Simulated scan of single mutants.
Amino acid sequence: MATTQPAHPVEPALPGGLPAQPGPVGTIRYWAAAKAGAGTPEEPYAAGTLAEALDAARRRHAERPEFARVLLRCSFLVDGAPVGTRDHSTVQLAEGGTVEVLPPFAGG
Results as ranks from 00 to 15, higher is better:
Gly26Ile: 00
Glu11Arg: 13
Pro22Trp: 00
Pro22Asn: 08
Trp31His: 13
Pro19Cys: 11
Cys74Gly: 14
Pro103Leu: 10
Gln21Lys: 07
His88Trp: 05
Trp31Tyr: 13
Tyr30Asn: 05
Ser89Leu: 01
Ala34Thr: 14
Ala34Pro: 15
Ala81Thr: 10
Ala51Phe: 06
Asp79Gly: 15
Asp79Cys: 14
Glu100Ser: 15
Ala94Gln: 09
Gln92His: 12
Ala13Arg: 11
Leu50Arg: 05
Val25Tyr: 04
Gly26Val: 00
Pro41Val: 08
Gly97Pro: 09
Ala62Cys: 09
Ala33Gln: 10
Thr49Trp: 04
Gly84Ser: 09
Pro12Asp: 01
Ala13His: 07
Arg64His: 15
Ala57Met: 03
Ala47Lys: 08
Ala53Trp: 03
Gly97Phe: 03
Ala38His: 00
Gly39Phe: 07
Pro65Val: 12
Ala36Met: 10
Gly39Cys: 11
Asp87Met: 05
Glu52Asn: 02
Leu72Gln: 12
Glu95Lys: 00
Pro41Tyr: 03
Ala56Phe: 02
Asp79Val: 13
Gly84Cys: 04
Pro65Trp: 09
Leu93His: 06
Ala32Asn: 13
Cys74Asp: 13
Arg59Asp: 14
Pro19Met: 10
Trp31Val: 06
Phe67Gln: 00
Ile28Met: 08
Arg69Met: 02
Arg59Tyr: 08
Arg58His: 05
Val10Cys: 06
Gly37Asn: 07
Trp31Thr: 08
His88Ser: 11
Arg29Pro: 13
Val70Ser: 01
Ala57Arg: 01
Thr27Met: 12
Ser75Phe: 02
Gln21Trp: 03
Glu63Phe: 12
Gly96Val: 03
Tyr45Val: 11
His88Met: 04
Ala32Trp: 07
Phe67Arg: 00
Thr85Asp: 14
Glu11Asn: 11
Cys74Asn: 11
Gln21Ile: 01
Arg60Phe: 02
Gly96Asp: 04
Leu77Lys: 06
Ala56His: 02
Glu66Trp: 11
Ala62Gly: 11
Ala36Pro: 03
His88Leu: 06
Glu66Gln: 12
Ala7Leu: 15
Leu18Thr: 11
Leu102Arg: 01
Arg69Ile: 00
Ala20Cys: 09
Pro15Cys: 08
Val70Asn: 01
Gln21Pro: 05
Val70Arg: 00
Ser75Ile: 01
Leu54Ala: 05
Arg86Lys: 09
Glu63Tyr: 10
Val70Glu: 01
Lys35Gln: 15
Val83Cys: 01
Lys35His: 15
Ala36Tyr: 10
Val78Lys: 00
Arg60Ala: 11
Gly17Asp: 05
Leu77Pro: 08
Asp87Thr: 07
Glu43Gln: 10
Tyr45Trp: 12
Arg58Thr: 13
His88Ile: 03
Val25Leu: 07
Cys74Pro: 14
Val99Leu: 04
